[in-house]
Write a protein that binds this DNA or RNA. Structure first.
Lengths: 228, 228
DNA sequence: AGGCCTCTGGAACTTGAGTCACACTTCGAC
DNA sequence: GTCGAAGTGTGACTCAAGTTCCAGAGGCCT
């Protein structure tokens, strides 16, 4: 843990979390008392083995959940985006296993609401809309991890990179990441990312510049991802 | 548990699923109307893209959830054991994505109860014990998949095989699987499993015979798994 | 018996990707 | 403008693991 956490009360949490619209007035009241907090970009949030005292509702920015292998290399397991939640650190407290991963903020400042464990359980047991929210986040995560596992086991790095770029690109088709960060997401080495990008670049699928990748041919990247 | 009234098909279900003990009489009644069904060993249960009409509560035997890659090789994503449930095929219906994997029975005959979608939602919304059961299964699956993903990305096949053998062995330290089946679980080739087994065998960690692996040194296998 | 299928044992080759070493560029800070 | 840090570009090497191909053993059936 241990990062700079600033507090700003009451930002529009309801906008990002539709389940609140269907919730009772009492619940909306309850959640609105919770402060919206911030964490600076690129800061650690949880270390492996930590048990959080609550559940993170991400309002802005994003969290990256990743592992660090024995040899020091790291790889992203999944990312928590606005409107989603990171409940596992709490779950880890229920179960007796330690939380199996690290969590850090990404390139934007994170704003989030921390729902304490007791309140989480109360909401889960009383608000049908919150229940289906939790169910969707969890089952969506299972789907996502299954897909990731299949990709790691059956696609080449170049194909996985294509998939990652398609998912990470903004509306302009820009991915503002260094090759080293891309490598850390994919769990590979920087040089390997470079070679894959050169191939893609030669094929006019992307154009690269310092700290960014510009997607030139999304359909081509999608084809690269799917057929091996 | 009474002796006469509940000696229906419900009996084995209640034993395997503790959440029923804490449920209302109405719910126990409801679930007791569901037949316990069987599927023979090594049969397909769901194909990728299928949407199941309900949720499987596994009473006996086990399910194997796996993917098949473009080149035909397959790998196990996770296994559903007695007392657990496979809800994803139902979830796939809620979401508009197809179910991302295949499901088949393993070496024992499967017995299960199929809880229809509507009943599942009703139970989820009315029975606190069922809710926490679902929550635990889902979050446990997320943990499991995260661990698997880390292992695939950072361990050698030999280490993953050691982990798999430890988990799959019965009380006598026997794993009754051919090398081809082990390879299909790990997502690798039969020859690779053979080489790993030969190394382990040379190190007196296991002994092999046709269709089975006998664990000789569990502590040694654990060491092999962890340090690499 | 013979035949057939499954399974294990093994050599030889290929390849994707991780590692090492190093030069060059870009950019911000001082 | 200089300096250092961060980032990119590249060749050479290594290695785990996948591929190909085949020999022989073990079991089961008729």
């Amino acid at each position: 843990m241990g990062s700079v956490i600033e507090q700003t009360p009451l930002l529009p949490v309801a906008e990002g979390f539709p389940f609140l619209a269907g919730a009772s007035a009492a619940t909306r009241e309850l959640v609105s008392t919770l402060p919206v907090r911030q964490v600076e970009p690129r800061r650690p949030v949880l270390h492996r083995g930590d048990a959080a005292e609550g559940v993170f509702l991400v309002v802005g920015g994003s969290l990256r959940v990743f592992y660090i292998a024995a040899d020091g290399h790291e790889a992203t397991l999944y990312r928590v985006r606005p409107g989603q939640t990171c409940i596992l650190a709490l779950t880890a407290a229920f179960r007796s296993e330690p939380y199996p991963a690290w969590v850090e903020t990404e390139d934007e400042e994170l704003s989030f609401v921390l729902v304490p464990g007791a309140m989480f359980r109360q909401l889960y047991n009383t608000e049908p809309t919150f229940r289906s929210f939790v169910f969707e986040v969890l089952s969506g995560r299972v789907f996502e991890l299954m897909t990731r596992l299949e990709e790691v086991g059956s696609l080449r790095v170049e194909q996985r990179l294509a998939a990652f770029l398609l998912e990470a690109a903004d509306a302009n088709g820009e991915v503002a990441m260094s090759q080293a960060r891309l490598a850390a997401h994919l769990g590979t080495a920087r040089e390997v990312v470079f070679r894959a990008l050169r191939t893609m670049s030669d094929a006019r699928l992307v154009a690269t510049s310092r700290g960014r990748v510009h997607l030139l041919d999304r359909a081509g990247l999608r084809r690269l991802h799917q057929l091996g």
